[in-house]
Amino acid sequence: MAKIKTKDVWIMGIWKENPVVIQVLGICSALAVTNRMDNALIMGAGLIFVTAFSEFTVSILRMHTPKHIRMMVQVLIISAFVIIVDIYLKAYLPNASKALGPYVGLIITNCIIMGRCEVFAQKNRPAISFLDGIFNGIGYTLVLMVVAFARELLGFGTFFGIPVMGQGWMNWVIMIMPPGAFFMLALVVWGVNTVREKQETSESAGEVKAR
């Protein structure tokens, strides 16, 4: 197998194979926690932690895990790290823990982590798996932040809880309700796909010219 470089992992996780926008994984929480930027940031940080360490652990154990029970082993490893995040939030950020509610626990079933463990960590060395986890987590967090930025700005007129829209601003209540989440994420997906397409066509056009 070709050796994967650190730089490739970086680009793949954040842009080329962004877990949320390109592969449409893990959008349950991407939709649910994005009504406020602080919630989205905490969720993203939790996911980066869990993905990185789960991939690291799965990768260390990859030689010793029997093939037919590997899914179960992965789920258990992920759950253990999610419990750490949950207890940490309860102790140090009780308000955020309450606001996120069951969605912290639902990191377990977030398809991004299972997917990366299965696709990447099962085949690669621990250090690079750890990096892959971090960058996929960052890719996820970035999308969350973009969606949360728009939803909080339009829905509450605030930025990280600081009012920025001035006196006459009418809150768009729809943005903090479920439909707003769906529309916003769809717009982000649309934007990213369009940009990527342009990039690809210009790349191939560039190749033609070079010839």
Partner: peptide, 23 residues
Amino acid sequence: VPKGLRGAGITLIITGLMALGFM
């Protein structure tokens, strides 16, 4: 459907409209 919206994008929009209805 606009090219960039095909697949996941349009599904999300439809789901959003359904959510709006269910509200």
